[in-house]
């Protein structure tokens, strides 16, 4: 059964590649604008051994990973605090409700004014934009804790801090993990947006801007292809980690359906 699925997937991807190639061969579209699939794939193969491109990839991934780490370091404690203090949460909520819908990339021009260091700029906009899902999931996660479990522990004479450590944090963790997964998608969007809009010397966004300047659409698409593949990989890793860590949570929510 699984073999059939994999085979069909390969056929689908190959079919798409052949279709793009055929469009190129037919001469309907100018190849400079829409290169053939073979050109893109050759370009992609060349890029993966090109030290300059690899440096760009490393720069982007570094900013993304550091940004995500900082986001977790800022947003998780903030979210847990707000989740534990309902009065504070009620007061801050209107501010969150207004700040969150600001399209995050719009703060890049402001960040350009404030940060002269390119990495700092990227980190600032990543943390601003990616914190929201983590913050909100942490608040909800802490609030969603089964009151019965809390009561049980209290009944056994545990203090509020140990209730927090033993019940509240473990049951909020899966929510936070989901928030982090969402945040990682936002972080990569912000990283490349910052590269496109603020310039700099290294990064996939910079590589693509330069390829555009040289009218090398084939290289732009080749780099985009790699970016997509990295995205697939990182998403798969995050999902796998989440599944492994929180198997009990999935079992519970499956059962509740």
């Amino acid at each position: 059964m699984n073999h059939v699925r994999v085979l069909r997937g390969v056929v689908g991807a190959a079919g798409f590649a052949v279709a793009v190639e055929a469009v190129g061969l037919s001469g309907l579209v100018d190849e400079r604008f829409l290169p053939r699939m073979s050109t893109i794939l050759v370009g992609a193969a060349g890029l993966i051994v090109d030290p300059e491109f690899l440096a760009d990839v490393v720069a982007t991934l570094t900013a993304w990973a550091l940004g995500l780490l900082l986001t977790v370091a800022v947003a998780v404690p903030a979210g847990l605090t707000l989740g534990a203090l309902p009065a504070a949460e009620r007061a801050v909520r209107p501010l969150i409700e207004f700040l969150r819908p600001i399209p995050s990339v719009a703060i890049i021009p402001l960040a350009i004014l404030l940060f002269s260091d390119n990495l700092h700029l990227k980190l600032a906009v990543i943390v601003y934009a990616s914190s929201w899902p983590v913050l909100i999931n942490a608040i909800y996660g802490l609030r969603d804790v089964d009151p019965l479990a809390k009561e049980t522990l209290r009944g056994f004479g545990f203090g509020p801090m140990s209730v927090l450590a033993r019940v509240a944090l473990p049951s909020a963790a899966p929510f936070i993990a989901t928030g982090v997964r969402v945040a990682s998608g936002i972080a990569i969007i912000l990283t490349v947006s910052a590269e496109l809009l603020a310039g700099g010397s290294e990064g996939i966004g910079i590589f693509i801007t330069e390829a555009a300047g040289g009218n090398r659409i084939d290289l732009m698409l080749a780099a985009t292809l790699w970016a997509g593949l990295f995205g697939v990989l990182s998403n798969a890793v995050l999902v796998a980690v989440e599944r492994r860590l929180f198997r009990w949570h999935h079992a519970r929510s499956e059962a509740a359906r």
């Binding site: 990339v105 990569i188 969007i189 990283t191 490349v192 947006s193 496109l196 996939i204 966004g205 693509i208 801007t209 390829a211 555009a212 659409i217 732009m220 698409l221 780099a223 985009t224 292809l225 970016a227 997509g228 593949l229 990295f230 995205g231 697939v232 998403n235």
Partner: peptide
């Protein structure tokens, strides 16, 4: 693959 491509990267394209 398509959903994993960060959409801003395609703006120049």
């Amino acid at each position: 693959l398509g959903r994993a491509v960060p959409p801003p990267l395609l703006v120049p394209f």
